[in-house]
Every structure is written in C-alpha cells, then in structure tokens.
C-alpha cells in the first residue's frame, strides 16, 4: 500500500477539491445524532462522529427505489436505467467500510444487481479511524481493521492523518487536491500507538467461540422464546443494519392506471409476513423464530456461503432496539443459555 501524511488543517482542501468532481457525502449532525448526507461546506463534516443512524448502504441500495417503469397495456418495460452520479463517501468507519464488502458478496456474484453495481462503481470510499463507543463490538469479527474496500483511509495520529491509499484514483485525488508528505518512522510509530490505544478501548469482549455450531446445536434453546417476548417486531434493527440486504418488491400504478413502476423497499425478516407464502403458510409465525432467524442467518447462513459473518459489530441495532436486544447480549445468552 501507498502512504501519505496529511495535516488535519489541510483536510478541508481535500473535501473542497473532491467537491469539484464528485458529490461528497459524509457524517453531519442531525439533532443529537449523525447522518450521512451531502456535504455543502467542509466545516459541516463531523469526523468526530460516533455512528450514523443509517449506515452507508442507503447510498448504494436506497430504502425505496424504482427499479423499472412499465406500461400496463402491453406489459412492457419502458425504462430500467439507473441514476448513479459520481460520489465520494467521506469518513466511513472501518465497520462500515467492511460492511460494503459483505454487501458486495450478495449484490454481485452470479447474478449482478445492476442498481447496486452502478452506484458502487461510481462511488469512492474515504475511511476514517474512530474511537469505540459502548455499543461497538467490531473487535469480535476483526472488522475493526480495514485492509481493502477503500480508496483512501485516514488514521488519526494527532495533528495529522496517516493516509493509507489503496487505489490509483485515491492517489490521484490526494495528489491533485491536498498537500501531503511521505511518512516517517515517527508517523508509523504514532500509527501503531494509536492503533494499540484503539484496540484497548473496547468495552465489549464477545465470546464468538463455535458460534455457528452453537446456533445449530442450541436451535431449540429457550433463550429465543425470551428474546421473542421482548422483541417489538418493529424491524428497526434491520433498517439500521449496514449488512441487512433483504428487500421487498411491489408495483405501483400512476393515477391514470396505464403506467407504473416496480419498486423495491428495504424489508426485514422480523416482519411477520416475511416468510409467509400465498396459501397462508407462514414459515416463521412467531417473534421468537424471527429473532432467531436474524442471528442464524447472520452468523451461519451467510457464513456458509461467504466464509464471513454478516455483522460488522457497529452496534447500530443495539442503539435502535427499544426493547434492549443487544447482539452482544444475544451471543452471550447463546453461550451461557441464560438471558439476563
């Protein structure tokens, strides 16, 4: 990899420079929280954010998206173009950078999702280092580190950023838009020191031993009934999850009933109708079975295909869940058999 050092007070130059070529999206304050939104002024960029309400997936796989327009009379598709402006996601934390790699496995592959792909190919990723909050547990999955999946990654080393540059495009943009210098041994020492402090700052230590196997062996464990009692079935966990990709598809007609659009929307396996078929059979009728499925799929279903768990430990679901279902506690309960 290629490394440069960028002084913190020069960073606005990079944002302004990128804005001349791209739509720049980054963390900004919304009330007490943060959201990923277009950056008009580099000063509004809040690289000190803890986490955003919604993860970066919304910029690749929007909550609601027209996937094609059609004409009713002859059942013909009239448009399935994708609008994908050149964009930079500026300031993603390691968990979120890694989440996109997990989403790629689903939306690429044998059948390529053209809507996701168009946006993914037109979007550059600039990551930034972070400080663990009390809901973070990326350390459990190794997603606290980024090795690829970004164009530029900015690690805070005090007055400067230790910038790891992954792509030609990233190198060109740094070169073109911001003053930077080569790294020194002292920069690398600072980077190691900061990394050690980051690793030591996690308050959660999740025992993931034999998790896929335990999910099977304890499939009938009473812990799921206990979580099912608490679960509000609201689906908030899935909406805020950077790796939940499930969607629903429906058709909507224009007022004239002659034209319409096929729309896909985010869906959740926590919704009761998620696994119900037309004849009335529902394969996951109870909240307990649905909570269980969410974990079963993330820690084993996805793993069985892609050799990674479908979780990056961002903690958004723990923050969003009004019923206090925290994945760290769920995994603990699975290990111990006890729900506190």
């Amino acid at each position: 990899m290629f490394f440069r050092v960028i002084a913190k007070d020069r960073l606005p130059d990079l944002v302004r420079g990128l804005s001349t070529e791209f739509e720049v999206v980054g963390p900004v304050a919304k009330g007490e929280k943060f959201v990923l939104a277009p950056i008009e002024d580099p000063a509004s960029l809040r690289l000190d954010y803890d986490t955003t309400v919604l993860p970066p997936k919304k910029w690749f796989f929007p909550p609601e998206e027209t996937i094609m327009r059609f004409r009713v009379a002859d059942n013909e598709v009239v448009d399935d173009e994708v609008y994908a402006p050149p964009r930079v996601l500026f300031g993603l934390h390691p968990c979120d950078v890694n989440s996109l790699l997990l989403m790629d496995n689903v939306f690429f592959g044998k059948y390529v999702d053209p809507y996701y792909r168009a946006r993914r190919e037109n979007t550059l990723i600039v990551g930034v280092s972070c400080t663990p909050s009390d809901t973070c547990f990326c350390n459990a999955w190794g997603t606290d580190e980024t090795h690829w999946g970004f164009d530029i990654f900015l690690s805070d080393i005090g007055d400067s950023y230790f910038a790891s540059i992954r792509s030609v495009k990233g190198a060109e943009l740094v070169d073109r838009h911001v003053e930077s210098r080569d790294i020194t041994d002292e920069d690398t020492r600072l980077f190691q020191e900061r990394t050690a402090a980051f690793k030591a700052a996690f308050s959660n230590d999740v025992d993931t031993s034999q998790l896929p196997l335990l999910l099977d062996a304890k499939f009938d464990s009473p812990i799921w009934e206990a979580f099912g009692e608490k679960c509000l079935a609201c689906g908030a966990c899935s909406m805020v999850c950077p790796t939940c990709y499930c969607f629903d598809v429906h058709d909507e007609l224009e007022a004239d009933q002659q034209h319409g659009r096929r729309v896909r929307t985010w869906d959740s396996c926590q919704f009761k109708e998620f696994a119900a078929v037309a004849h009335g059979q529902n394969f996951r009728d109870t909240r307990a079975s649905r909570v269980k499925y969410r974990y079963y799929h993330k820690q084993w279903g996805y793993l069985s295909k892609f050799e990674r768990v479908l979780c990056v430990g961002c903690g958004r679901c723990a923050r969003a869940c009004k019923a206090n279902i925290n994945p760290v506690r769920v995994v603990e309960a699975l290990q111990t058999g006890v729900v506190d």
Binding site: Y111, Y245, D248, F274, F283, W300, G301, L303, S304
Partner: peptide
C-alpha cells in the same frame, strides 16, 4: 420446497430455509 420468493436470485432474503 415452496418458500416465499421475491427476486429468485438469492438477494431479497425471503426464501431462507435454515442456512440456505
């Protein structure tokens, strides 16, 4: 097996049966 399906291509998640 019959399961609920939307996309047919392993993306929408509706037809999950166990880990498949």
């Amino acid at each position: 097996f019959e399961r609920r399906m939307k996309c047919g291509i392993g993306k929408c998640g509706h037809c999950g049966v166990g880990h498949q």
